[in-house]
Design a protein around this nucleic acid. Sequence first.
DNA 1: CTCGTGCTTCGACATACTTCTATCTTCACA
DNA 2: TGTGAAGATAGAAGTATGTCGAAGCACGAG
Lengths: 137, 137
Amino acid sequence: MPPGLVEQLGCYSPLVREPLSGEQAGELSRLFKAMGDPVRLRLLSLIASHAGGEACVCDLTEVFDLSGPTISHHLKVLREAGLITGERRATWVYYRIQPEVLEALAAVLVPAAPDTVPNGLGDVVPQTRHELPVVEA
Amino acid sequence: MPPGLVEQLGCYSPLVREPLSGEQAGELSRLFKAMGDPVRLRLLSLIASHAGGEACVCDLTEVFDLSGPTISHHLKVLREAGLITGERRATWVYYRIQPEVLEALAAVLVPAAPDTVPNGLGDVVPQTRHELPVVEA
DNA sequence: CTCGTGCTTCGACATACTTCTATCTTCACA
DNA sequence: TGTGAAGATAGAAGTATGTCGAAGCACGAG
């Protein structure tokens, strides 16, 4: 996972509040691109919803009609994006999600309470108002 | 935009609550894939945060060092994904975001309050519990 | 009607992505 | 130490994607 990713994401304003910088857009788009594949989304969901919060690769491979290397490739994409982490225990490798990253993404997608923005520590802090969109009925 | 997309998205459980079906993953991945490009993410953010909640293509084109056709292509991708809508007024075409879709995506990413899930009408309803992940400290 | 502007569509090209088979690494166990 | 299983890596093939220039469409102004 890229160093400092979570901290960086926690500082992002919601998409709709102010325009993303090129750098912010680059970081975020890498995460969304990683989720932009149905197999990877299902892998993410399977891992996240699995009992114990983790799943071994063998659990995941049997769900799909795909070869082992293909599943391994998709897991690598998710891992390098910072969405999951893997740990080897004996013969098996177990993956679990990085919940803060998903939460940060959710915070970027939806505007927080008025005049607040997540600060990466789980709560919200005041923020100066930019151009607020006027959405008609 | 695909018909019934918003209603469908509103019925999705959070990623971490239960495994996505192949069909659900297909729908969602199309949205994430559309956001998986830095230019498109910035376009989305520029449109959403623009004064009046809408932006014309000329406003957007001048921000990037890209040709008009390229911007138009990215806007088409966002439009066909259901993330934005476009409307022609006189010479100009104005785009605005589809806020319900972004909100639905955010709801998929983050677990709602315990035993609840968005019903697509802006509030939450009870839901049966699946395998709840145990996240260690 | 004609012209210019804003935007989209078309066709082409280079790059990236998804998937596979074959091979390699790591580990448990005899 | 040797063997087998779980995963990862490497390389290749087919497809999709991002970008451009050229051309087309819609609209307002003369």
